[in-house]
Simulated assay, not measured.
Amino acid sequence: MPDKATTRLTQRDIARLAKVSQTTVSLVLNNRSDASARIPAETRDRVLKVIRETGYQADPLARRMVQQRNQILGVFTYESVFPSSSGDFYHPFLAGIEECAERLGWDLLLFTSAPVTAGRRRIFHENNRLRIADGCLLLGRHIPGDELARLIAEEYPFVSVGRRDDAGGPVPYVGADYAPATRIVVERAQALGHRRIAFAGPGAGAESSADRLRGFRQAAGARAPHLPTVDRSGGDLLDSLLDQKVTAVFVEERTDAVALLAAATARGVDVPADLSVIALGDSTRPAESDIDLTGFHVPRRAMGLRAVELLEAVLSGTATERQLLLPCELTDGTTLTSPKGV
C-alpha cells in the first residue's frame, strides 16, 4: 500500500487497491445516485474501506470538474468597494478572497448590475446573473434579511462575510468574534482602575454593532452609559463624556475615535491621562491619524480567505460547520492608561 505520508494518492491508486475501475471509484466518491445504484453494495463498501484506510482526499479541482461546475466565484457587495486602495476598509477582505480563489483555481465575478433601490443595492432583480457563478460571497455592513431568506429558500450556495442572524434560518457566514474581544479590552481597563466607563456608537442595526455592545455589557454591566454617535461631532461626544466624568470610552467606529481624539487635542484634554480612548475595530469610513489606538483590529483578510474556503466546502458537500467566528487581534496601543488618582 502506498505511503500516504509521502505519496499523494490518486483515484487510480484507489481503484488498483480496491480491484475496481477508476470510473467506479469516481462514482462512489461523488455519490452519483443515478449510476452508483448500479454498483453492488459489496463493491461500494470495498472502495470506501480503502479510502478510509489510506486517508485519501479527493482533489477539490477534480471534484469540481466532475460536478460540472463553472469554477466561478461571485462577489456581491451591498456597498461600493471598488476602486479599493490598500487603506480602504474592504481591501483586506478582497485580498483574502483573491488569494484563496487563486489557490483553488476559481475565477472571480463581481456583480455590478444590481440597481439601487431606496438607497440600497439589491441582489435580486430582473437581470440578475447569479446562476453564472457556482456560488456567491456577500459583503456589506447591512444585508437585507429578506434577500438572505430568499437565497436560503432557493438553495443558492452563498456565504456572508460577517455574522448574520436575521434571515429566518441559518445563514452560512465567516465573521469576527466582536463580543469577547470587546469584553477583554473593557476588563483590561477595569483592571487599570477605570470605573466610570462608557460605550460610544450605534450598538444596534448590524450584528457587528450589537455584538460589540453585548461584549461591553458583559463586563461593564447594564448601567454603564451608552452614547450614540450618529450625526454627532467629536466635540459634542467629548462634552458628554466630560459631563459624566467618564475616564475610559470604548468607541465602536474607529473614525469616531479619531474625531474624538482631535476634539480632545483642540480642547487640551490629555489622552490617555484625562480620558482613555479604546477603538473597537477598524475604520469603515476614511480616517487619518498617527495615533496608535488601543483596542483591536478585525481579521479582515482571514475572513475573506476563510469565506472562500467555506463556500468551496458548501459546494463540495464537505462543510462540517457553516458559521465561523474568527478572533479579533488585540492591540496595546497608547491610548489606555490608569485614570488619575489610581
Rank of each mutant, 00 (worst) to 15 (best):
S160C: 15
R254W: 07
Y178G: 04
P202V: 02
V186C: 11
R196V: 03
D239S: 08
G203P: 04
H226Q: 13
R254Y: 05
K245D: 12
A220R: 11
D243A: 13
G169W: 00
P170H: 06
G215K: 09
A179F: 08
V186R: 10
P225S: 03
E154N: 10
A149T: 07
E207S: 13
L241R: 04
G169A: 15
P225W: 05
L192M: 15
H226A: 15
A224R: 05
H226F: 02
P202E: 13
D177L: 13
P228I: 07
A222Y: 04
G221N: 12
R254Q: 12
T247L: 00
L213Q: 06
V230T: 14
G193N: 11
Q244E: 14
P202I: 00
F199G: 10
A224D: 07
R183M: 13
G205L: 10
A220V: 11
E155A: 13
V251S: 12
D146L: 01
R254M: 09
L213C: 03
R164D: 02
A179C: 08
A167E: 01
S209H: 15
G162L: 02
R164P: 00
L148K: 00
G215I: 12
L238N: 01
R217S: 10
T229K: 03
R223A: 15
G145P: 01
G175E: 10
P170M: 09
R188V: 03
P170K: 12
G201I: 09
L213N: 03
P170G: 06
V251H: 11
R196G: 04
A198V: 09
A200N: 12
D211A: 15
E147T: 02
I184Q: 15
L213W: 03
A191K: 13
R223F: 07
A179Y: 06
G221H: 12
D166Q: 11
S240G: 01
A200K: 06
H194G: 08
R150Y: 04
E147A: 01
D146C: 00
A222I: 09
H226L: 04
G235L: 00
E155S: 14
G221W: 13
R217Q: 10
V174Y: 01
R163F: 03
Y173I: 10
R254C: 03
E207C: 07
R163A: 14
A210W: 01
Y178S: 09
I152K: 03
G193P: 09
L241A: 09
A153C: 00
R163G: 02
V186Q: 12
P228K: 02
A206I: 03
R214A: 15
G201C: 11
R195H: 15
Q190T: 09
L148W: 00
Q244W: 03
P225E: 04
Y178R: 05
Q244N: 12
I197W: 02
A219S: 15
L238S: 01
A220T: 12
A222P: 05
E154H: 05
P180L: 05
T182W: 10
T229H: 08
G234H: 00
E252G: 04
P170Y: 00
A204K: 13
